[in-house]
Amino acid sequence: MSEVIATLKKDYIYNLMIKGKRQDGRGFKDFRDIKLETNVISKAEGSAKVTLGDTQVIVGVKLQTGTPFPDSQDEGVIITNLELNPIASPEFEPGPPREEAIEMARVVDRGIRESGAIDIKKLCITVGESVWIVFIDVHVLNDDGNVIDASCLAAIAALMTAIVPNEQQGIGTNVPLAMREIPVGVTIAKIGSKLMVDPSLDEEAVCETKLTVVSSSDGSVAGMQKMGSAPFTEAEVLEAIDMAREKAAELRELYLEELVKRE
């Protein structure tokens, strides 16, 4: 986000970075502490709350029946929305979503959709008539930087713990939402010529550009988005991709794989 930051602080962060240090003492490849809770909202079919440093994000997954898109008659529908709640930052205002919110929602959506995380064929109730629509709603509760990674993590965790409420529609018993893949998004921030993961709020204000890479468990890349005005070089992009894949594998192993077992 475009937080205002003192020039002095900006210089401080920048100079630290040159020395290979970060404001909070982390290494360039270290995430802040992550806490992941699932099933935090019982009314939702699936939910998760992620705390990343002081950033807090909550994701609720709701399933409703609806008609499929004409070009994919036997597939369920995924709709992702991201709310930059005014409660999360003095910068945020109520009203229609800002560009950043739309962009982040679409990046979260892209990772889930393109990696084939949800088996959408199994969400078909009657071909061409009725399918499950999966609403993934991301609520940002506190913005302390790197909302996008927290959102990706919370969204996939919420989906992995979601159930398909068949009973509610009278079409059989409730089953877990069929998942095929665990995409994890990792954002690499570029400050000067250095690349680092998980930028804090101040670092986000200093960095001019970020690259979010969503990767699948086989290490392939399912979605990417460059955000911010400064350019990347090709070598930096390739380096960032490798960095992101490595971190994604770590996060997947630490926080998400246990959710698979739970099913």
Binding site: E114, S216, S220, A222, G223, M224, K226, T233, V237
Partner: peptide, 11 residues
């Protein structure tokens, strides 16, 4: 050759 836009979807 500096990259100013980069997006990707797929695999």
């Amino acid at each position: 050759g500096e990259i100013t836009l980069l997006q990707m979807d797929g695999n």
